[in-house]
Design a protein around this nucleic acid. Structure first.
Length: 433
RNA sequence: GCCUCCGUAGCUUAGCUCGGUAUAGCAUCCGACUGUUAAUCGGAAGGUCGACGGUUCAAAUCCGUUCGGGGGCGCCA
């Protein structure tokens, strides 16, 4: 059995016998001739199968009456180059079996011009489309490149629990769940557990869902998203930023090298940014934004629109760093030279916004206790007894980050909405399918 | 939490201001077609106008309530 992804390389001057299994994506019938666009998931590309009545065994051509979009077929035929076919190759069928039929309802499920609501309700059908397949392929490849990068840099992958007792982030809303006879929450970040794991494995990373119960209706928010997080032992703030620059550059180079067909499908040409990315301190950003017409008081969050204006001013990903201590959670390390700011940073991408949040972690237990008490609402150190213990016994300088995989995908392919960057999106009003 | 827009056939939609049960394209069904690639051509069928209530001789259209959905803000990755 051959896979469609292999066909292009198999083409020779003379026709090559092949056997394919796959699903009908499009079907065009024309008297004693018919064209099937066959899709098998091995590539987002379909292959055109040409059915001619006089090339098929007796009565086999009559099977076209059973063929609807979505049907599963087995095809034996001759592969050849043909400029008339999509992607330049086609298979002239010599035999065909219907593995499982579809029916006329398939086309009624998700018509070409279906709206957002229909497409989300029929997501299980939508993902059969070549274009959605391409997005999910690239998503898979980014996960692979990520693992390749981290393993090659001496990190181990761990899978911390996603059911947790206390919250890791300050402001974000938590999903509360019933956990036998007590309350628990779905995690918003695995950071704190990764910090603990350092003491067992050294450098660590994880790729897990994070959950945010924010009632955010924007093209950049999911309630469940894939969070790529890492924590690195003995790494300071400067080392962290360089490490993440290398990571982003590595991802983009790999995508450019291996996934050019997908980039082309989406009409994207990637420009790999060069090191170092522009560093913009929070204080500088406030000043720069004033020039750009945004008057933001020092010590308040830079919201979305000004943030985008700022990064678009540079035109490349920037590192927005050194947020004021009062604005950030207790675990961000206070800067040695200026205690009013932290060694924290966000990587801001043009046209999209924040994709990575990162920072050096605080190791001074007294500073942490002080800031936990000042948070609103105050954080109870009892709930973090194990996290505080990390600072009691052999603490070390360490730094970490979190990257939103779907946001990165949206940025790479310039997608209209983050819901298109994941298999079955979880949104404010949607948990099905 | 706030602002805003939209629900008419499987889908996309005209009609609504100024009340008289509804328009078209795609998909579906039947027929023709050996080079299509959103195929084309001819024909057919498909609707309690989101739901409930009110006004009226008469409501897709006017009023009220409610449900569902889109876009954005804020917040965040």
């Amino acid at each position: 059995m051959n896979r469609i992804v292999e066909l292009k390389a198999m083409v020779k001057d003379d026709p090559v016998p092949v056997e394919l299994e796959g699903w009908v994506w499009q079907f065009r019938k024309q008297g004693k001739l018919a064209f099937v666009e066959l899709f098998d998931g091995s590539t987002w590309k379909i292959v055109q199968v040409t059915l001619k009545k006089n090339k098929l065994p007796e009565n086999k051509f009559d099977l076209i009456d059973e063929i609807y979009r979505g049907a599963a077929l087995r095809i034996k035929g001759q592969l050849k180059a043909d400029g008339r076919a999509p992607h330049g190759i086609e298979v002239l069928a010599e035999d065909m079996d219907v593995i499982h039929p579809s029916n006329e309802e398939f086309d009624q499920q998700v018509p070409q011009d279906a709206g957002v609501d229909v497409r989300l309700n029929k997501r299980h059908i939508v993902i059969r489309s070549p274009k959605t397949s391409a997005i999910l392929k690239l998503r898979s490849h980014i996960l692979k490149y990520t693992r390749d990068y981290f393993y090659s840099r001496g990190a181990e992958e761990v899978t911390p629990p996603t059911i947790v007792e206390a919250q890791a982030e300050g402001g974000a809303e938590l999903f509360e769940i019933k956990y036998f006879d007590r309350k628990a929450y779905l995690t918003q970040s695995s950071q704190l557990y990764l910090e603990a794991a350092i003491f067992s494995l050294g450098n660590v990373f994880c790729i897990l869902p994070s959950y945010r119960a924010e009632k955010s209706r924007t093209r950049r928010h999911l309630t469940e998203y894939t969070h790529i997080e890492g924590e690195y032992a003995f790494m300071d703030f400067e080392g962290l930023k360089e490490y993440l620059e290398d990571y982003i550059i590595y991802l983009m180079e790999q995508i450019k090298e291996n996934d050019s067909d997908i980039l082309e499908l989406f009409g994207k040409t990637l420009e790999v940014p060069s090191k170092p990315f522009p560093r913009v301190s929070y204080k500088e950003a406030i000043e720069k934004l004033k020039e750009l017409g945004h008057d933001i008081p020092y010590g308040t969050d830079i919201s979305d629109a000004p943030e985008r204006d700022l990064v678009n001013h540079y035109g490349v990903p920037i590192i927005l760093e050194h947020f004021p201590t009062d604005m950030k959670p207790f675990y961000h390390k206070i800067n040695e030279d200026d205690p009013s700011i932290t060694n924290s940073a966000d990587f801001i991408f043009p046209n999209l916004g924040e994709i990575i949040g990162c920072g050096e972690r605080e190791t001074d237990i007294d500073s942490m206790l002080d800031r936990m008490a000042k948070m609103d609402p105050p954080v109870n150190p009892e709930e973090y007894y194990w996290y505080m213990d990390l600072r009691r016994y052999g603490s070390i300088p360490h730094s970490g980050f979190g990257l939103g995989l779907e946001r990165f995908l949206v940025w790479i392919l310039d997608l209209d909405h983050i819901r298109d960057a994941t298999l079955f999106p979880r949104l404010m009003n949607r948990v099905s399918p």
